[in-house]
């Protein structure tokens, strides 16, 4: 079973995303900011990270940059999932090593399409 780490400061978003991922037969775990996510990745590298942009402590882009520098940090597929929906943000995310980008609001169709796009399903 593939493992996806959901990183978002909103408990509601984390809950919804985890439910969708579990329906998609993923093992889902949660982190509420980039630092917490990075700590979890250092213990066990997930197959995928569904990543919010704006979070306290460490935001999504700082997490992504740090993750890609970690040993094995190039392996997880990182899919941003954020309300930031302009070209500049998307470009920054891709340049920093994101594999895909979801603009909130999202639904199962969109998550499935993006996961399929990056070869997770």
């Amino acid at each position: 079973m593939k493992h996806c780490l959901v990183v978002d400061d909103s408990p509601v978003i984390r809950k919804v995303a985890c439910r969708i991922l579990e329906d998609m037969k993923f093992q889902a775990s949660e982190a509420e900011n980039g630092q917490e996510a990075l700590d979890q990745c250092r213990v066990s590298m997930p197959d995928a990270v569904l990543l919010d942009w704006n979070m306290p402590v460490m935001d999504g882009i700082a997490f992504l940059v740090a993750l890609r520098r970690e040993p094995g940090g190039d392996r997880p597929k990182v899919i941003f999932c954020t309300t930031e929906n302009d070209v500049d943000h998307i470009t920054r995310a891709i340049s920093a090593g994101a594999n895909e980008y979801i603009m909130k609001p999202f639904d199962r169709d969109i998550i499935e399409a993006k996961f399929h796009e990056v070869g997770l399903i």
Binding site: N85, D86, V87, I90, T91, I94, E100, Y101, I102, M103, F106, D109, I110, A113, K114, E117
Partner: peptide, 20 residues
């Protein structure tokens, strides 16, 4: 719409062939 461009379209092609 934002919903339509997220179904099946890779983000790299969105950046390359669409404008906001």
């Amino acid at each position: 719409s934002q919903f339509q461009v997220q179904r099946g379209l890779p983000v790299t092609l969105l950046l390359k062939y669409f404008k906001r």
